[in-house]
Design a protein around this nucleic acid. Structure first.
Length: 115
RNA sequence: UCAGUCGGUUGGACGGCUGCGGAUAUUAAAUUAUCUGAGGAAAGUCCGGGCACCACAGGGCAGGAUAACGGCUAACCGCCGCCGAGGGCGACCUUAGGGAAAGUGCAACAGAGAUAUACCGCCGCAUUUUGCGGUAAGGGUGGAAAGGCGAGGUAAGAGCUCACCACACGAAUAGGUAACUAUUUGUGUCUGUAAACCCUAUUCGGUGCAACGCUAAGUAAGACUAUACAUUUGCCCGAUGUGUCUUGAAAAGCGGCUUGAGCCUGUAGGUAACUGCAGGUCGAGAUAGAUAGUCGUCUACAACAGAACCCGGCUUAUAGACCGAGUGAGCAU
RNA sequence: AGGGGUGUCGUCAAGCGGUAAGACAACGGAUUUUGAUUCCGUCAUUCGUAGGUUCGAAUCCUGCCACCCCUG
């Protein structure tokens, strides 16, 4: 199984927002930045704009499930932050995974040997 | 049959694949196996309590809360029963419901006058484009104008007197644990407002799991100091302790953490809230935070909504489905 | 977890038991050849919302809703 770490500290999020490159979708926003370790790290931001606790939890679950599908194709040594937007509540995780793959392709972080 | 009242239950189900938190067992470790994993409101944080700590919790003043009566409870601004008041044809619903004869304040506008009065009136005397005195029945204003109505009485009138009624207070008798209710009798007729100040009675120590304890790391510099500093609610008294403050650095992990005023069933007591006894049972414990993703079937393509130390309530949100007990009207027998 | 505050016209706001001030904006008119300036007029029908106390509530009391701030 492919495993990844989660981002927890506020300074990591700020570093990725400030120095990383961003890609926008109707459902979410992706931030990508290289890191010096050889691991894949991921963080999720869901603001109160999305809704109550139930809606925020659901948004986090959907993004986590989509990222787990995409994760095997990613080159190691990158950090990702996903910011949820309101439209994510009506989507299925398969649509989100497809959109996420497009964003990652644009960011040039996918494994070319697998394709 | 129609309309309406009250109370309660439930809050999608089944299967396949891929995944997450916790516990136990196993392995050198990664792993693997089994079991288990959100709510009736988990929400708001509005009350009360447990628990933990504080140099024990004392007094006074100030402040907050509650407010008919009896019970239940660990406790309560809670619940149950009941009384009074108000609403409804009724089932039933609502109710912060002590004190205004301890004192102070307020009552705009209108009105003559707002807690005391005399504008229009009425009556008497003097007089003549009015004055003085008596009076409060009638008029008008207002939320409120000295209880209502009739008779006697009078110059005109007035609880001034009397009968009936209404209300307040006291007493007696009957019922009730009590609040209170009913009857009789005596005295009286006093405006409203205390969710205005206030008075009376009861009650309230503080801080909150980021409490608190342990481990690791760190323990450097400066200032003040016994007439000082700190804690104990806001102030004062009293009590207690001995270093205190500022800046900088570091702020990581473990425990607390889920067996508890627990839940289920039966039974006994009680109108009920609730309590006793017997048997059974263990049903989350995360720390950027776990219940998901997806496919198939059924239906109406399911509401409000996510534990964060734990309980008892209150308040608010809630698609639909189901059950029970009363009431009114109409019709039939 | 604990504590505090605000909500009044489109905007900024005063009023804290007795007819809801004012300024800017908007609209209409006057002045002007036209515009600006200036002057006059209009504009709150649930004072965030639902109840209660009172003769009377924006104001007092209670419950909700939204927003903001403080402490750790």
């Amino acid at each position: 199984m492919y495993c990844f770490e989660k981002l927890k500290l506020n300074k990591d999020f700020r570093r990725i927002y400030g120095r990383g490159s961003s890609f926008v979708n109707p459902a979410f926003v992706t931030y990508v930045l290289k890191n010096r370790n050889k691991t894949v790290r991921m963080g999720i931001t869901v603001s109160k704009k999305i809704g109550g606790a139930v809606e925020r939890n659901r948004a986090k679950r959907i993004i986590t499930a989509a990222f787990r599908e995409c994760a095997p194709q990613i080159v190691k040594g990158h950090d990702f932050v996903f910011v949820a937007r309101t439209r994510i509540l009506n989507c299925k995780s398969q649509d989100i995974a497809a959109d996420m793959l497009e964003n990652l392709k644009a960011a040039n972080v996918l494994n070319k040997t697998d394709e």
